[in-house]
Nucleic acid binder design. Sequence first.
DNA 1: AGATCAGGCGCC
DNA 2: AAAGGGCGCCTGATCT
Length: 606
Amino acid sequence: MRIAVAAAEGGGGALRPLADDGAPAGPAETVGDLAAAIAERERAAGPRWVWPATARLYPRLLEAGVRVARCHDLELVESLLLGHQGRYGEPRSVRAAWARLRGEPVPADPPPPQEAPPQGSLFDTSSDAAFDASFEASFGEEGPGAGGRPVAEGPGRGLHSAAGELERIVAVHAEQLRRVAELPGFALLAAAESAGSLVAAEMGHDGLPWSAERQDELLTELLGPRPTGGMRPRKLQALADRINAAFGLRTPVNPDSPAQIMKAFAAVGLPVTSTRAHVLKRVDHPAVPLLLEYKELSRLHTAHGWTWADTWVRGGRFRPEYVVGGVVSGRWATNGGGALQIPRVLRRAVVADPGWSLVVADAAQLEPRVLAALAGDRAFAAAAAEGDLYAALSEAFRGTASDGATARDQAKIALLSAMYGGGTGEAVRLLAVLKSRFPQAFEYVEAAARAGERGALVRSRLGRTCPPPSAGWRRLTSEGDEPGGDGDGAGASGEPGGGASRQVTAAQALRSRGRFTRNFVVQATAADWALALLAALRRRLAELGRPRLVFFQHDEVVVHAPAELADQVREAVHASAEEAGRLLFGRTPVVFPMEVAVVDCYADAK
DNA sequence: AGATCAGGCGCC
DNA sequence: AAAGGGCGCCTGATCT
């Protein structure tokens, strides 16, 4: 059972029940209180809700205390379907999908809601009705393709027009179901992506437990007391002073300026090509260790310091905005707050409420296990049936170790090189071992790389598809080995970006694209798996009641739960990981073990 | 003054 | 210990 939903301004909306093939199963109905109507039907029938975008509608429901079990996010699914055809960046709104369906001119997506401050009247400006009203304000009722006549009824949108949108929603949904059914894995992908959108909104709503006090203590310990005005914290200023003393130059250098640092090194007779940490580490000068320490602390201060806390932490919670499908591989991105780049040292500030625990779970060696399951290489899969995959592979690499490295280290290097397209120095030798002992696993990623180099698309297990190469890339790589233009083809995924040299050769462009598609099949399938895990875990946690998913970072989840439920959450995590493996790969010897820690503080996990 | 680019580094 | 791909966000420098 499904129910299509269109929101109106003012909290009302329109609903229509659908059969599982998307056909209307009853009359449309308008309601004055959409949240209440959804809550009532969720209790009665537990339908799959079909709506344009969870990100715009669901936060309002959560504010009203309403949660739902399942949904179909039309925009996310439209993106996946377009992507499967190699059509990246085309409009994905319901109106656009509707226009494509009818062979009419396709309107551009309306711009995203202006600014989304971390707190404030967020939900009014980002609600679905406002989104649609903004569409009409921008383009007129029929969209830009129809000449954009003026909007008669002003910026708002009432129940009448919600009913009109409902008609488009029903039609677009039915068409999506038809297309999804033709693509293996896609039904699961659409469901998992939609479940992810629910998790993302709920995590943004619930927030990650965060102690601003602990953060302040940590910052004070590392940087000195919080400075006033725009001053540098005491310890940072002291380092800057010592850096200048070490250079001993007449004109002072600002350690935040790479250009000035490079000049300073040149002035003392030690020119450097850049001021990256790994470059500086090779330079023997007393300023180097000071600069490295300065960079580390400065980053903490500017990216996750007191200003960050003022902006993002409220009421003991950090509430980032997650962007489902924000990365082409299916990983999530975030919008503000840098939730996926929180420095490890700051995990000290993530603390469970009194009487509650954090269940921190991370998938061990996820990407090589995914490769094992994808490739169907029996010897390799046997290793991936073990708790420590690299250790299980190490027999094959015995005797390859130089210096102090173990065979396990060598196995890990070989695997990472295969999955990421590295291969300098000894990695080449280790790759040869991998190729001879695990030919199918090796061939799987090689085939993905070759596909990329000839401009083909590659897909994840469930069908998520990489973006096509740009026109610039095609032009460059079809012209032979002539040096290319001025970065004209750069920008799209898997193409050489800026960097020191603007000149990109055809060979470089080919290799870069090959590395991208080689990595894509593994990273995107790992993201498939992680989404399936998340969906399964969310369902199990709902049965337990109070536990909440509060953090998700690629292959790691954190659940905030009453302490007495922590063991049940732990079991739910293990069961969900197993379920995810089964959903993606069916019967496979490969296991996807989770390392789970029950802690009061995130920093105490592993 | 505001927008954009480049360099750099945090996370997986 | 690192390598690779993927991101977001900061500052300084430069452009408009």
